[in-house]
Simulated scan of single mutants.
Amino acid sequence: MNLSKQLLIGLKADGFRHPLDLEATNTLKQLPGLDVVIRSILGSVGEQFFYLNNIASSVLVSAKQLPDLHKLLIEACQILDLEPPQLYVQQNPVPNAYTFAMRGKKPFIVLHTSLIEMLTPEEIQAVIAHELGHLKCEHGVYLTMANIMVLATNLLPTWGTVLAQSLQERILQWVRCAEFSCDRAALLATQDPKTIMSVLMKLAGGSPTLAPQLNLDAFIEQARAYDAASEDSLGETLRMMQNAQLSHPVPVIRAREIERWASSAQYQNLLQQHNSKLDNSGKWRNW
Rank of each mutant, 00 (worst) to 15 (best):
L278P: 07
K277W: 12
H18I: 05
P208Y: 06
L3D: 08
Q86V: 12
V61L: 07
L278S: 09
G15M: 05
V252M: 02
W159H: 11
Y51W: 14
A228E: 09
I74G: 12
K29A: 14
Q273N: 13
Q78S: 09
F16W: 04
S247N: 12
L156Y: 13
I116M: 00
M241P: 03
H248E: 08
Q268G: 09
C182M: 07
Q48F: 15
R39L: 12
L167S: 10
L11I: 01
V250E: 07
E221M: 05
P84K: 06
R224G: 08
T158P: 10
S247I: 03
L28E: 01
H70L: 08
S281E: 13
A186I: 00
Q222W: 07
L278N: 07
Y267A: 04
R256A: 02
L42E: 06
T113C: 05
H70M: 07
Q242R: 11
L87Q: 06
G43K: 06
R224N: 12
P32R: 09
L155S: 12
Y267K: 06
P193F: 02
V45Y: 08
S114Y: 02
I171S: 03
D192N: 01
M241Y: 15
E236H: 13
L31V: 15
P249I: 02
R254L: 01
L82W: 08
D279W: 04
K105D: 11
S181T: 04
I38P: 02
Y51A: 15
L80C: 08
I116G: 02
P121G: 06
Q78I: 13
P19A: 09
V250D: 04
A244M: 15
E122C: 03
L20N: 14
G160P: 06
L119C: 06
K106F: 05
D35G: 11
R254A: 03
Q273M: 12
Q266R: 13
F180W: 07
E117C: 08
